[in-house]
Design a protein around this nucleic acid. Sequence first.
RNA 1: GCCGAAGUGGCGGAAUUUGGUAGACGCGCUGGACUCAGAAUCCAGUGGGCAUUGCGCUCAUGGGGGUUCAAAUCCCCCCUUCGGCACCA
Length: 828
Amino acid sequence: MKESYNPKEIENKWRTDWDEKKLYQVEVDNDKKKYYVLEMFPYPSGRIHMGHVRNYTIGDVTARYKRTRGFNVLHPIGWDAFGLPAENAAIERGVHPAKWTYENIEQMKAQLKKLGYSYDWTREIATCDPTYYKWEQMVFTHMLKKGLAYQKSTTVNWCPSCETVLANEQVEDGLCWRCGSEVELKEMAGWFFKTTEYTEELLEWADKLKDGWPERVLSMQKNWIGKSTGAEIKFKLQEPVGGEESLKVFTTRPDTVFGVTYMSIAPDHPLVEELIKGKPEEEEVQEFVSRVKKQSNLERVAEGTKKEGVFTGAYAINPFTHQSIPIYVANFVLVEYGTGIIMCVPAHDQRDFEFAKQYNLPIRIVIQPEGVELDPHKITEAYVEPGVMTNSQNFSDIDSEEGKEKIIDYIEENGLGEKQINYRLRDWGISRQRYWGTPIPIIYCDKCGAVPVPDEDLPVELPLDIEFTGKGGSPLSKVESFVNVSCPECGGSAKRETDTMDTFVESSWYFLRYASPKDTDGIFDKEEVAYWLSVDQYIGGIEHAILHLLYARFFTKALRDLGMCDLDEPFKNLLTQGMVIKDGTKMSKSVGNIVDPDDMIAKYGADTVRLFIMFAAPVNRDLDWSNEGVEGSFRFLNRVWRLIFDVFEKIEGVKGVVVQLKEISKPAKELLTKTHKTIKKVTEDLDRFSFNTAIAAVMELLNDTSRFEPNGESDLSVLRESVEAMIRLLYPMAPHISEELWHELGYEETLVDKEWITWNQALVQSAAINIVVQVNGKVRGQLTMDPDSDQDQIKEAAFADEKVQSYIEGKEPKKVIVVPKKLVNIVI
RNA sequence: GCCGAAGUGGCGGAAUUUGGUAGACGCGCUGGACUCAGAAUCCAGUGGGCAUUGCGCUCAUGGGGGUUCAAAUCCCCCCUUCGGCACCA
């Protein structure tokens, strides 16, 4: 055995060895329980960063550990290979996106391999490969036939910098999620997935997933879906306009309907024009509307934007009070939510209150809090809490929560409206005006309309011979050989759709494709999918809480309903890791605080990097990168190496398991106990993803083992046992050094397939235990006792303690609490 | 505003699953050994205050209250930080 630890040498050696033996290639084995661990696959940007390292190390430790626990572990990796950066590289540097992407993949693959991850590389996929996106195109056309995909022209979010449409989920605070440009609104035709078809199911399952998913992810998703329960109520117009007799509003507070004193309609609502036609207010309203429309969406919703409105000249009738109420156009009403028209109850809604004060509209109290009498002239803000209904004719004196139901019953019975649930979630717009993505398989024919490309004609391949100017819209539309085709239905001349799909579509189903990545007969091999799916442990960044994770859940359900798989949900358990930060901020080029994984591996080896990143923080929290900390992890591995080097000759020929407890010294007994306690602790910690404490426990074991001075042959067995345990417990985190030391100790078998080490319960319960003695809750003494001592014996020993006696001072204890094996508390 | 998470030494963090010795483990720092010297390594110490010729005493887990023999842990109120959603009717 060499005296010094040389990570480079041993890491190369074992990586090659594991590779050559094809240890990580797995197959369906119906006699074995499967475990599917998956990390969110990377976008091939060219270099991996510490966030990747953290993500993939968590996955690898899990995969290695589960394998030693007897599971048939599927641990695949691939590339989320479509996307804008490749296209930008083409525009800026003239490199073809395909070339750029595949070169990046090669580079990153080499980096990942250096970290010693146990991937089954034979299952590698790249989403830009036609053999992958072919199936995506097929899913699209099948969804189309099932009504789960459709085309419509609507107002869309347009990013002027990316020159493409964005889905609602991809707009953050009015800015593009990728480049941060301000998003504009544009009227445009596009293709949509009907995510709203699954709103209720997505919500329902959000509850069922709560044992495996972090609460905050589920709560973000629920928030995003934004369910609100209420009613749609019809308000009759005083004079019909544009063929409409009445206006519909959505409200969550039907109990306040007697307090409605006006209505508001969104400025961009199509009915506005009809309402004002020929009225004296027409001009003023038009002016207001065009002024609001000129504002960007960002301005319109910005904090502090004044609530403004203008009277339309039209009136409606409150169906409950039969009073005539004015209709306003108001800038705070959104056309896309509910019906785009609202009933306004100034007494019980803060916005309505402010608006009413500004325009001198009447305020009518219809909910009273208990024990207080609200005065409409004196209140300074709306009362929005529940209370007792008042001024509400037959409904007065009813509790407002109960009143909601009663009002709904009433409107349903009298044809005035109905119970209604509204969601914030919209359908997913997937059309992108970009080149580097999956072509949407549609052919437009003047005679037959939008015709889906038949299955046998798929894939619609991206033409590779193409020019990138960065100007003038979608590059595909300029490739005539691509655009001009004959219609699959009538054979006449037709044109292809030139938009590509949102790249989030590829990542919505890749986890299923890993089960049978090379299948040419269909999207999935049903048996493989049935065996491997769902994903037992999914690991990734919290930033995908809504986007990717919601899309993937939707897509899985859609695939199920197309009969392509049998899954309700893709990911059984989800782990969201925190960010890797340095000096208090996220690592980024502009701040200049990037630590390059390659540099770290070159300096310390992969095991040190892996170990540090698992040790420095609990997985779900942000991790503060510290170069000194990495040194510490490197030091630790060196100490492990040196310990074994130092004792090597002594333990080389010794058996690792002690038989006769009688024969060993007291320190040896203590070390043996410590060893088995550590095995237990590390096992339990790995089971709950508490890697930092698992590593701390191994460090403690090293400290104790280093201090141990064996006395006799049997003591050496204990030493060997603790050394072996240390190596095996370290293996999932630091596989190379563990494998090397394991073989140095004379073993031929690989740790990759070695069954996980177990502890001996009898040894964990050590011969003597420490019992704390408290007087009035304060620690005043310690007892060393037999673990089998009964309450009376413990009590007796506690009172016998001199120091304890001095605190009791001869007084009669009021109470004595004995917690077996732990503590005595004497209350005086 | 609504929803969610979190506040513990100089720093990262442990103990929260199960109420039971708060500060494991690591970093940093201080002193010592080795060395011509340094690096590396090893040993000792390291929450505050008091006592340090003893074993010790005392305060302390964002703040305030409560439950309990016993609270970092459970309950109530408040403060701060972070994340999500937000003129959503």
